[in-house]
Nucleic acid binder design. Structure first.
Ligand SMILES: [Mn+2]
Ligand SMILES: [Mn+2]
Ligand SMILES: [Zn+2]
Ligand SMILES: [Zn+2]
Lengths: 138, 138
DNA sequence: CCCTAACCTGTAATAATTACAATCATGAAA
DNA sequence: TTTCATGATTGTAATTATTACAGGTTAGGG
């Protein structure tokens, strides 16, 4: 089991208390949190942490491929410690974003129409089972 | 050829000069414009138009299924007169969003993991052919 | 240890979107 | 046609997400 510190080093990132805590939070909370959610959660133990630090840190994590991000909600970016390609489901009622792992996306390709593909995102939107009216469950 | 006015009526929307112009703009500009792009373009002919009207109008167009939207860029919503399911490619260099029509998404399904699916979005991100360095074209 | 580049923080600026209240226009009914 | 209520439009203010920036702090190589 690689330590968080080592994972930062591997990517050429300095290790800092804030970075460790942010990465740790993402590893433990696979809920696709927003910057604000991460900030609110970390503030408890780390009252001095700045939201700018969250933004900066997530940016460097993204650039080094330590994490991935999602733009499914349309009004705020969400972050994910899972970097292997997988799909997502957004509940339009409660806002929950779930991983969809059983759908293998056949679209992992290097180009479309002559354009170079670096990322593929498959998003589903609808109503999650918890928000489906009873009796209408599928 | 159905008139724009009729298409509004069909959806139970009142016809107004602003709505006609906004729908017309989207029909003629299949570039996935943002609210601001629509606003800047319409302002020429319609100097009194308000950005709030654009927001309100697009919202009602979306609710009635007259148009569709995209959250591919992560920092602003884009709008599309095309409502038939299709995929998109975002160039991370120039920001252009292109339709990807040749990829049939096999994911048009009514549920995933018991959650009811209402929309499916397939996004590709990378470098468009215009932004690819010469010699590296695919 | 020292030093410097890299990092963290707080605040201010920017950008996208929503809320709201006053005015105006559509279209159904008289 | 004219009337009128409802719904649409507008301008402004508020909110929210994100970025810019400057000054203080710290990690880690030498
Ligand atoms: Mn995920
Ligand atoms: Mn499109
Ligand atoms: Zn839900
Ligand atoms: Zn490009």
């Amino acid at each position: 089991m690689k330590s968080l510190q080592d994972r930062l080093k591997e990517k050429g990132l300095r290790s800092s208390y804030q970075r460790i805590k942010i990465l740790e939070y993402l590893e433990k909370n696979r809920t696709h949190p927003t910057v604000d959610a991460i900030y609110e959660a970390l503030k408890e133990k780390l009252p001095s942490i700045s939201k700018t630090t969250i933004y900066n840190t997530l940016k460097s994590f993204l650039e080094t491929g330590l994490i991935s991000d999602l733009t499914i909600s349309g009004h705020e970016v969400m972050y994910d410690a899972e970097t292997k390609p997988h799909s997502h489901f957004l509940c339009k009622s409660c806002g929950t974003v779930l991983d969809v792992v059983d759908i293998k996306c056949p679209h992992v390709r290097k180009e479309v129409d002559g354009n170079k593909v670096e990322e593929v995102h498959l998003y589903f939107k609808g109503l999650c089972k918890k928000c489906l009216p009873e009796g209408r469950k599928q």
